[in-house]
């Protein structure tokens, strides 16, 4: 199964200047009160996203997913810079990895000295479905201001056995339970088109 390209869906670019210097590279400049909301689904290769929150109350919500199989290599780099006070960012990254693939997530939130009252969140979760797939996570916070909220989390592992058992005691087969748990993983995406791609991928690789 080949998914020809990596997908994206920008549901809000209000007050956002979008640059795409290469097919895998995105730069978003979000001005005062601007709102960036974007979904990205990566099946191979690089994805490099920079978000600059340039004005007060600028907001961004990034939902990234990746599906790793065979000998593919995925490299996701996200950098969010809170260049102004009272800016808000939220990144949710979800991945499924099988085969001999290798994925690397490198995510940075930067909050400089003068950017107070900012709120930054980054959460990366990946499920490893084979013995040989590899996922590397490098979450980083660079915080220089003192009155901010910032959190990051990263969890990589196999499917939770207790969750599988719980679903099975309700009458779902192991395969149904796996599918429910893995699909639920991606329900932060706003694009319906991605659902189809994820379902096809799971039907083929899970």
């Amino acid at each position: 199964m080949i998914i020809s390209d990596n997908r994206f869906f920008l549901s809000s670019t209000a007050g956002v200047v979008v640059e795409r210097p290469a097919s895998s590279k995105w730069i978003f400049q979000v001005s005062e009160n601007g709102f960036l909301q974007g979904d990205f689904l990566q099946v191979n290769g690089d994805l490099d996203i920079s978000v600059l929150l340039n004005g007060i109350d600028a907001k961004c919500e990034l939902n990234c997913g990746y599906l790793l199989n065979d000998n593919n290599k995925i490299n996701i780099k996200i950098h969010v810079e809170h260049k102004c006070s009272k800016t808000i960012s939220n990144q949710q990254i979800r991945g499924l990895a099988t085969g001999n693939g290798e994925a690397c997530f490198n995510g940075t939130i930067t909050i400089p000295h003068n950017s107070q009252k900012c709120d930054g969140h980054q959460n990366h979760r990946a499920v490893i479905l084979s013995d040989t797939a590899r996922v590397l996570s490098v979450p980083q916070l660079e915080i220089w201001a003192d009155d901010v909220k910032c959190a990051h989390g990263s969890a990589i592992g196999p499917l939770n056995k207790e969750q599988l058992f719980y679903l099975q005691t309700r009458g779902l087969t192991e395969s149904q339970a796996r599918k429910i748990l893995l699909s639920s993983f991606f329900n932060h995406f706003s694009s319906m088109e991605f659902d189809g791609i994820i379902q096809d991928w799971m039907a083929h690789y899970v």
């Binding site: 058992f165 087969t173 192991e174």
Partner: peptide, 8 residues
């Protein structure tokens, strides 16, 4: 029997 069969 698997848990799902027992449940059903």
């Amino acid at each position: 029997q698997t848990p799902d069969v027992r449940a059903n």
